[in-house]
Amino acid sequence: MASSGDRPSVLYACVHNGGRSLAATVLTRHLAGDAVEVRSAGSEPGDSLNPVVVEVLHERGLSTEGEHPSLLTRDGVAAADVVVTMGCGEQCPFVPGTRYLDWELDDPKGQDLDTVRRIVHEVEAHVRGLLDELGVRAA
């Protein structure tokens, strides 16, 4: 495992790192607490977080404070036990020995509030499934 200690390390990767991967990161922190090391990055990170995704997370009582888009790097991938891609596809660096999952999720960019709520709900279902696979009890 790439992580230090007993905590698995998960990297969520999408294109702009302000929507799907943001939701997955915030939800993982909320559901797993300190049991999982979680990071996110984008193959072409945007300048800001998706405001509708932020609104949906805030509706759920979840903070996005301190979150910002960051660049997906080979070193970042190598430091993760599990890399979850969400639309970055072939732009995601491949590191042998790293476990990859691809979650097919709609891009929340330009979507209305109800659509983004549905996407965030789907992200949560995937996160819960991953935590279960990792043997981490979700809150």
Score class of each variant (00 low, 15 high):
3 S>E: 14
4 S>K: 05
6 D>R: 14
8 P>S: 10
8 P>C: 07
12 Y>D: 08
12 Y>S: 02
16 H>N: 15
17 N>I: 00
18 G>K: 08
18 G>M: 08
20 R>T: 13
23 A>V: 01
23 A>W: 10
27 L>S: 09
28 T>L: 01
30 H>T: 11
33 G>S: 09
35 A>H: 11
35 A>T: 14
35 A>V: 13
36 V>G: 00
36 V>P: 08
36 V>R: 00
37 E>I: 04
39 R>W: 13
39 R>A: 11
40 S>A: 06
44 E>F: 02
46 G>V: 08
47 D>H: 04
49 L>G: 02
54 V>P: 00
58 H>R: 15
58 H>Y: 12
59 E>Y: 04
59 E>V: 02
59 E>A: 02
62 L>A: 02
63 S>T: 15
64 T>N: 12
65 E>S: 13
65 E>D: 15
66 G>K: 05
66 G>S: 09
67 E>H: 12
69 P>D: 07
72 L>V: 02
73 T>Q: 03
73 T>C: 04
77 V>I: 05
78 A>E: 03
78 A>S: 08
80 A>M: 02
80 A>Q: 05
80 A>S: 07
87 G>T: 05
89 G>Y: 05
89 G>W: 03
89 G>E: 15
93 P>R: 01
95 V>I: 07
96 P>A: 08
97 G>D: 14
97 G>T: 06
98 T>E: 10
100 Y>L: 03
100 Y>C: 02
103 W>C: 05
104 E>Q: 12
105 L>C: 01
106 D>N: 08
109 K>A: 15
112 D>H: 09
118 R>V: 13
119 I>Y: 02
119 I>F: 03
121 H>I: 00
124 E>W: 08
125 A>K: 13
127 V>D: 00
128 R>P: 01
133 E>R: 13
134 L>G: 04
134 L>N: 06
134 L>Q: 07
135 G>L: 09
136 V>N: 03
139 A>P: 01
139 A>V: 06
